[in-house]
């Protein structure tokens, strides 16, 4: 099985999008969605693992992130807008009944897709995400929307990456999280966070028909357990995968993540 990660481009709704892909295109499709302001590189430990197990894995850079261009250069500040764009991408590249996985805002996007298209997806795996995520301080967010309000953005992001990783995260993975957080445009990052705090799909949870696994690191200080519990309790067929000593980046912090997700997918096969 070829597990090499291969990049390609596609135009969706006027955005020129980059995506990493791995695996046989005839395999079961899986979409992986990155965190605020970041890019598909975050999934480099996940793509080969699932490609080797028969999945066709696609990790796009959302518009304005990584190597994806943004239509009209106006950053997107809505989780639902991202979700519908990702859903359109799935259609354009012919992904039938995909597994939708994402972390942080990517997890919120996965939940939004599940909330609106659950009959047409195999499963959703939101990581460090919830039905609502009003957890970022508004004053910091407003400052971040202006470049002059966030001096030393790269340093701030770097330190935030170290702080948001759990105590059981592998040190070399924490170093990678911190380094990759240095990259990107703060305006895009903070518009993503605007989407994060505005996201709320609680009224749609009861209608989610597909299996959902919510992955939560118990050291993620961006997401209190109460919001996770509210989400899991609200979805008819939901499972909580709790990871002790893990923070906001479970898919990068530890290789254990892949096996836990694989076990969930095997349980619903």
């Amino acid at each position: 099985m070829n597990t090499e990660i291969i990049g390609r481009y596609i135009d969706v709704d006027g955005h020129r999008l980059f995506m990493d892909t791995a695996g046989d295109p005839s395999g079961r499709p899986m979409i992986c969605l990155h965190t605020a302001g970041k890019h598909a590189l975050q999934w480099r430990f996940v793509l080969p693992y699932f490609a080797e197990r028969g999945y066709f894995v696609v990790a796009p850079d959302l518009p304005g992130h990584g190597k994806s261009l943004l239509k009209d250069y106006v950053p997107i500040d809505s989780i639902h807008v991202y979700a519908e764009l990702v859903w359109k991408l799935c259609g354009q590249i012919g992904l039938k009944r995909p597994v939708i996985m994402g972390c942080s805002i990517g997890g919120d996007i996965a939940l939004d897709i599940a909330a609106h298209h659950s009959a047409d997806i195999h499963a959703a795996i939101p990581c460090e995400a919830a039905a609502r995520t009003p957890t970022y301080p508004l004053a910091a967010l407003e400052r971040g929307l202006e470049d002059s309000g966030v001096p030393s953005f790269a340093d701030q992001s770097y330190i935030g990456g170290i702080a948001a990783s759990g105590t059981r995260a592998l040190p070399e993975r924490v170093a990678e999280i911190a380094w990759t957080r240095r990259l990107g445009d703060p305006r895009v990052h903070y518009n993503d966070l605007k989407g994060w705090i505005g996201h709320d799909v609680r009224h749609l949870l009861a209608g989610i028909a597909c299996p959902v696994a919510v992955v939560w690191g118990n050291e993620d200080y961006y997401l209190p357990y109460e919001l996770i519990k509210e989400t899991v309790d609200g979805i008819p067929n939901a499972t909580l995968i709790e990871m002790q000593g893990i923070g906001h980046y479970p898919h990068i912090e530890t290789p254990e993540f892949n096996a836990l997700v694989e076990r969930f997918l095997a349980s619903i096969a």
């Binding site: 309000g149 966030v150 001096p151 030393s152 340093d155 701030q156 330190i159």
Partner: peptide, 12 residues
């Protein structure tokens, strides 16, 4: 707090 942010790594 702008200065606090600007020397984030020093505070760290």
């Amino acid at each position: 707090t702008i200065e606090y942010a600007r020397i984030s790594r020093a505070v760290y």
